[in-house]
Amino acid sequence: MVSQIGQRTFERYTNSIDIVADFLAGLHVDEVSDETIAEIVRARRAVGVTTATIRRDLTALSSVLGYAVDEKWRKGNPALEAMRSRRMKERRDPIVLPEDRDIERVIARAPGNFKLLIRAALLTGCRQDELVTLERRHVDMNRRAISVRGKGNKRREVSLTDEAVALFASIPVNLATRAVFWHPGAKGRIGDRAREEPEPGPFINPATRFSLYTRSIAAAEAEEIAKAAKSGKKLEPTFRRFRFHDLRHRFAVDYLRSGRGGIYTLQQEMGHTSIKVTELYLSFLTPEEQARAKDMPAQNMAQVHRFPGLTGA
Rank of each mutant, 00 (worst) to 15 (best):
E11F: 08
N15K: 08
S16E: 03
D18C: 10
A21D: 10
A21L: 06
D22A: 12
D22N: 11
F23L: 04
L24V: 10
A25T: 12
E31W: 10
S33V: 11
T36P: 08
I37K: 05
V41D: 08
R45A: 10
T50F: 00
R56P: 05
L61S: 01
S63F: 10
V69A: 10
D70P: 02
S85M: 07
K89L: 11
E90S: 00
R92D: 00
D93I: 00
R101Y: 05
N113I: 08
L117T: 08
A120H: 00
T124Y: 02
D129M: 10
L131H: 08
H138M: 02
V139G: 04
N142P: 01
N142H: 11
S147H: 04
S147P: 00
V148W: 01
K154S: 03
V158D: 01
V158W: 02
L160I: 03
A166S: 14
F168A: 08
A169M: 15
V173S: 11
V180I: 06
W182T: 04
G185K: 00
A186K: 13
E199H: 15
E199G: 06
E199S: 13
F210N: 00
Y213W: 13
Y213P: 01
T214R: 00
A218K: 12
A219D: 14
A220N: 12
A222C: 07
E223Q: 13
A226K: 14
A229T: 09
S231A: 10
G232P: 03
K233N: 14
K233C: 12
K234H: 15
P237Y: 06
F242D: 08
F242R: 01
H245A: 04
V253C: 09
V253F: 06
G262A: 12
M270Y: 01
T273C: 03
S274V: 02
I275P: 03
V277S: 14
E279M: 13
A291V: 09
N300D: 13
V304W: 04
P308G: 07
G312C: 05
